[in-house]
């Protein structure tokens, strides 16, 4: 039988923290509703909040890392992609200094992951060039 439930959560986009309900039906994320009575947003959302579920099953979502080789994008395993990023990052920092690198983290990551990006930027690479998509 078709099922329907809603899961309260916080909008993944900016730092405002609006309350939303994720609509789950048939094992899929089916939509979003603004959470009534939420202390931050009280039943309202902006365009991004209303569309926050769409990227999850978007055909344009990057499901595997792609590496550009000879002008073509090639799917590679995550480990290989990470090695390429690490090598290129090390090479750039060695040649041009830490401030040649910048880091952008995301509200779609957990607090812990964002904390680690912060550590990586400041303590490992040595740059203050760090920003976050929530700082709209």
């Amino acid at each position: 039988m078709t099922d329907y439930r809603t899961v309260p959560t916080v909008c993944p986009y900016c730092g405002t923290g609006c309350g939303m309900l994720l609509e789950v039906s048939g094992g899929r994320l089916a939509g979003v509703l603004p959470q009534k009575g939420h202390p931050v947003s009280d039943g309202t959302l902006c365009l991004k909040g209303w569309a926050a579920y769409e990227f999850v099953e978007s055909p344009r979502r990057l499901a595997r890392p792609l590496v550009r080789r000879d002008g073509k994008r090639e799917a590679v395993p995550v480990e290989e992609a990470l090695s390429i990023v690490a090598d290129r990052l090390r090479d750039t920092v060695e040649r041009h200094g830490p401030d040649a690198a910048a880091f952008i983290c995301s509200a779609k990551c957990t607090n812990e992951e964002d904390y680690l990006v912060n550590k990586l930027a400041r303590a490992v690479v040595g740059t203050n060039n760090i920003d976050h998509c929530a700082r709209l």
């Binding site: 039988m1 078709t2 099922d3 329907y4 309900l21 959470q35 009534k36």
Partner: peptide, 19 residues
């Protein structure tokens, strides 16, 4: 097959299809 109403969770009333 189901009843669409509200489930109480964390002080909020959330739409829910009950069986």
């Amino acid at each position: 097959d189901g009843v669409l109403g509200y489930r109480l969770a964390g002080g909020s009333h959330l739409p829910h299809l009950f069986t």
